[in-house]
């Protein structure tokens, strides 16, 4: 079976910067594939090339075995796309928006109702409300409905949960899992590392380059070295002190803790803890840290930059 999306050595430059550098990866049928990276990493550019909106400088890309340049008309009938920012008609009601997108794809709401039912029941009480007056979470649900209304085979979601509250984000990801079970391949991008764990596979992307592609579990295994979490009420001073410590390779703030990666070969962090106490961090708390995707990402970043 052909992969849902196949990308080979894709390059794309804008005037003076290279947005995508030699990108290659495949997304299998029915796979939920996450593209993880900060703003400006080139995620939206990649989405636009795959959804036939932009032309790449060189390289090949296929969606459902169709070339994104030669077969763009066919692709447009078979994909669903949710752009990075809310892009529905704000002055049209929920129902009018959905009806419009159903019609331009040559179908009706009724014909494909079963696919969007789970999501649409939550919107139904507001169906006569203008889309611009919905809450952030509701807007995203409506946008997803509009992207799904023609039963696409591949779904492209560009940062669908940015700016959405945590509860709605969680609900949104549950919907994606259900869609995946229906056999729809999904390419989703997000700047949130916690969402990455919900994907089948993820690609870490930075400055137009793919740093690593793996399942969330195995990506954590790729972390080298020992990770230790520390906190004190004088966080900034602690961060500075740890960064200049000879046994610490790198140190970043993660939530309420600092995560310090030790230099290669060092596994015991007790002496470092002692050094910090000697420096006057009396309330220091230190323990082993579990490796998260953020840590892998930061490590990969520092490696590419070095």
């Amino acid at each position: 079976m052909k992969p849902a999306i196949s990308i080979q050595k894709l390059n794309k430059s804008y005037k003076d910067e290279q947005a995508l550098k030699n990108i290659s990866f495949d997304v299998e049928q029915g796979e939920l594939f996450g593209l993880i990276g900060p703003d400006g990493a080139g995620k939206s550019t990649l989405f636009r090339i795959l959804t036939t909106l932009l032309l790449a400088d060189n390289g090949e890309a296929e969606v459902m075995g169709l070339d994104v340049v030669d077969d763009f008309r066919n692709i447009r009938n078979r994909i669903g796309y949710m752009p990075g920012r809310f892009s529905l008609y704000q002055d049209l009601t929920v129902e009018e928006n959905l009806d419009f997108f159903a019609t331009i794809f040559g179908t009706t709401i009724e014909a494909n109702y079963d696919l969007i039912k789970d999501i649409y029941v939550q919107l139904e009480p507001f169906k006569d409300r203008p889309a611009g007056k919905l809450s952030g979470g509701m807007k995203q649900k409506l946008a997803l409905c509009c992207a799904l209304i023609h039963k696409p085979e591949v779904l492209f979601l560009d940062e669908p949960t940015t700016g959405v509250d945590p509860v709605s984000r969680k609900e949104f990801w549950q919907m994606l899992k259900r869609l995946k079970q229906q056999g729809i391949a999904i390419l989703v991008s997000t700047p949130y590392m916690d969402e990455a764990a919900l994907c089948d596979r993820i690609a870490l992307i930075q400055k137009g380059e793919i740093l690593s592609i793996a399942s969330p579990e195995s990506i954590n295994d790729s972390f080298h070295g020992t990770l230790v979490a520390m906190k004190s009420h004088r966080m900034y001073e602690l961060l500075k002190a740890l960064r200049i410590h000879p046994k610490v390779e790198s140190c970043y703030a993660f939530g309420e803790y600092l995560n310090a990666t030790l230099v290669e070969g060092v596994t015991d962090w007790k002496p470092i803890e002692q050094d910090m106490r000697d420096k006057g961090f009396d309330d220091l708390v230190a323990h082993d840290a579990t490796v998260g995707i953020e840590n892998v990402f930061m490590q990969l970043l520092s490696k590419t930059e070095a």
Binding site: T51, N77, I79, L88, Q90, I104, F105
Partner: peptide, 17 residues
């Protein structure tokens, strides 16, 4: 400006529509 043009372009609509 609103980004809806992107959605219209990704749809099967032709320019003349």
């Amino acid at each position: 400006e609103l980004g809806t043009m992107e959605l219209l372009l990704v749809s099967p609509l032709y320019s003349w529509h």
